[in-house]
Structures are given as structure tokens and as C-alpha cells.
Simulated assay, not measured.
Amino acid sequence: MPWDRTKNRTREEIQRDETVRLPYADRTEAGRVLAERLAPLGLEGAVVLALPRGGVPVAYEIARRLDGPLDVLVTRKIGYPPQPELGVGAIAEGGSPVYDEGLLGRLGLTEDDLAATLEAERAELDRRVMAYRGGRPLPETSGRPVVVVDDGLATGGTARAAVRALRERGPARLVLAVPVGAAETVRRLEPEVDDLVVPAAPWDFRAVGQWYRDFDQLTDRDVIGRLERAGRTTASDNGPR
């Protein structure tokens, strides 16, 4: 996998070997670059699960390239109550909350202190599941290769919650694929999956959006529209010839 090349390498060697031109134009371009990195891994027909909202247009390009079904795996960040943008944990549908225990300790928090926040995030997670899938369950992943996709990795909290929830569902092979991620976050996530594909892992990482020229915020309608397009494409591709 591409990230393997960074093991035991110096920062200068990693940067010298970088072959991805950043920033990406947009999530579509990033998805096409990522799809080409995934294509040699023997993942044809894999279930492709996007972390909405930003992961959906990236995953759309991957599902087209791998000729696999596209769906979403909904996650929610669990924020520090006085500063909600600071994620202290995350939850994915079908999984248990995953907390940053070190950060909780530094903030003097316990999991019980976050009970109300967790309840609110579960409610929003359920709302989004209903909005995106209308009550339809996740695709069957047991015994199948699964590719989890997001548009980038900053702290990696939601990605960790996602892959742990999926691991419990027994995939034959669990792959995490993102176009760009903070180098240290990528290293920490590597043991969580069977394959980790990250074409670019800059050391000077501040936010996912800095690595895209066009990083518009997406809406629920954007997510639903892309999922519907993927469904129509799959139906067309698999129809009578």
C-alpha cells in the first residue's frame, strides 16, 4: 500500500518521493487520483462506503472505478461541550463511541460528562441515516472487501470510529482510503485496517481544506443526489447488454 513507503523514512525522503500534486482541484479530482491508487489492489466489486458529507464525491469516483456499490457510513464527531469544534471522540452507525482518552484526561473529562453530547450526536446520526438511506440498512459487508473513504484525515477520530464499527461486521478486507491526511494521523490509523491508501501525507497539515482549491461545503441534498446517481449508474452498467 502507498503509505508503506513512509515507514522508517526520513521526512526529507518522504517529501522527495511525493508524486501527488497538491492542492487537488476538488473532491472529484481527488477521487480519481485515489481510485487509480486503489485499482491495482484487487478490490473490484468492493463495497465503497463514504463518510458524509465530504467523502461522498471522492467515493463516487472510486465506486465507478472499482465497479462496486456506493453507500454512506454515517459518523458524528463528539465535541468538547465548551468548544464543540474540538473533537474528543466520535461515533459511527452500528458502533460504540470511540474517545481520545489522552485528550479527555488533559481536559479533566470522563465519558459520563459527555452523555448529553453523545445523545445529541446519536440523534443527528439517526436523522442523517434516515435522510440518506430512508431506513435502508447498510449493504452487507460480512466476507466482502470494504473501502472506507473520506476527503481527508485531520485528527482521524471519525475514521477510527468508522473502521472499528465496520471491523465488527466481519469484512474480508478492510481498506481506508483518503486523498490526503496529516502524517502522524495516518501513522496512528495504520494498525486499524488491512490496507491504508493515502497518496499524500504532508507534515505541515493544518486542515483538510488547505489541500483543495475548491472545498465547498456540501449539503444533505448533495449527498443524496450523488448516491442516486451512483445507483442509476450501477443499474445501467449491470442491465441487459
Results as ranks from 00 to 15, higher is better:
residue 48 V to E: 01
residue 152 G to C: 11
residue 213 R to H: 09
residue 111 E to Q: 14
residue 4 D to G: 11
residue 177 A to V: 05
residue 87 G to W: 00
residue 29 E to Y: 06
residue 126 D to G: 11
residue 101 E to D: 13
residue 83 Q to M: 11
residue 181 G to Q: 06
residue 86 L to M: 14
residue 50 A to C: 09
residue 139 P to V: 06
residue 116 A to M: 07
residue 13 E to Q: 15
residue 231 G to F: 10
residue 212 Y to Q: 07
residue 141 T to D: 03
residue 240 P to F: 15
residue 210 Q to P: 07
residue 173 R to G: 12
residue 177 A to P: 01
residue 123 A to E: 14
residue 237 D to Q: 12
residue 195 D to I: 10
residue 200 A to L: 10
residue 38 L to C: 08
residue 141 T to H: 01
residue 148 V to P: 04
residue 39 A to I: 01
residue 182 A to N: 07
residue 17 D to G: 13
residue 11 R to D: 14
residue 26 D to C: 06
residue 73 L to C: 10
residue 72 V to R: 01
residue 82 P to N: 04
residue 166 L to A: 06
residue 38 L to N: 03
residue 50 A to K: 02
residue 104 L to A: 14
residue 84 P to Y: 04
residue 220 D to V: 13
residue 61 E to F: 11
residue 119 E to T: 12
residue 187 R to V: 14
residue 22 L to W: 08
residue 173 R to A: 07
residue 24 Y to K: 06
residue 32 R to A: 03
residue 156 G to R: 04
residue 173 R to M: 03
residue 129 V to C: 15
residue 177 A to D: 06
residue 189 L to C: 10
residue 11 R to F: 06
residue 208 V to L: 08
residue 25 A to L: 14
residue 207 A to E: 08
residue 95 G to K: 02
residue 49 L to C: 08
residue 221 R to A: 15
residue 61 E to W: 08
residue 63 A to N: 04
residue 76 R to G: 13
residue 25 A to Q: 11
residue 223 V to Y: 07
residue 77 K to P: 15
residue 35 A to H: 11
residue 151 D to F: 05
residue 176 L to M: 07
residue 172 A to E: 14
residue 240 P to I: 13
residue 108 G to P: 09
residue 52 P to R: 02
residue 188 R to C: 05
residue 42 G to E: 08
residue 2 P to Q: 09
residue 213 R to K: 08
residue 204 D to Q: 14
residue 187 R to N: 10
residue 41 L to E: 12
residue 226 R to G: 00
residue 91 I to L: 15
residue 148 V to S: 06
residue 227 L to Q: 04
residue 67 D to G: 15
residue 158 T to V: 03
residue 37 R to G: 09
residue 8 N to D: 15
residue 132 Y to H: 13
residue 120 A to D: 12
residue 58 V to N: 01
residue 142 S to V: 02
residue 166 L to M: 12
residue 59 A to S: 05
residue 104 L to T: 05
residue 133 R to Q: 06
residue 157 G to W: 00
residue 80 Y to E: 00
residue 125 L to F: 00
residue 43 L to V: 09
residue 146 V to F: 02
residue 12 E to Y: 04
residue 115 A to T: 12
residue 105 G to S: 13
residue 166 L to C: 13
residue 227 L to K: 00
residue 139 P to C: 09
residue 175 V to E: 01
residue 145 P to Q: 06
residue 39 A to L: 14
residue 185 T to Q: 11
residue 27 R to W: 01
residue 156 G to Q: 03
residue 227 L to I: 07
residue 67 D to C: 10
residue 112 D to T: 14
residue 94 G to P: 00
residue 189 L to P: 01
residue 103 L to Y: 10
residue 20 V to W: 05
residue 213 R to Y: 02
residue 221 R to Q: 15
residue 31 G to K: 00
residue 137 P to L: 01
residue 209 G to W: 02
residue 57 P to V: 02
residue 19 T to D: 15
residue 32 R to K: 12
residue 99 Y to D: 04
residue 117 T to R: 05
residue 34 L to S: 07
residue 19 T to E: 13
residue 4 D to W: 12
residue 121 E to D: 05
residue 175 V to I: 09
residue 198 V to M: 09
residue 121 E to F: 02
residue 157 G to T: 09
residue 239 G to I: 11
residue 205 F to L: 09
residue 93 E to D: 04
residue 49 L to A: 08
residue 83 Q to N: 15
residue 27 R to M: 10
residue 174 L to G: 02
residue 181 G to K: 06
residue 27 R to Q: 04
residue 28 T to L: 13
residue 53 R to D: 06
residue 165 A to H: 00
residue 37 R to M: 10
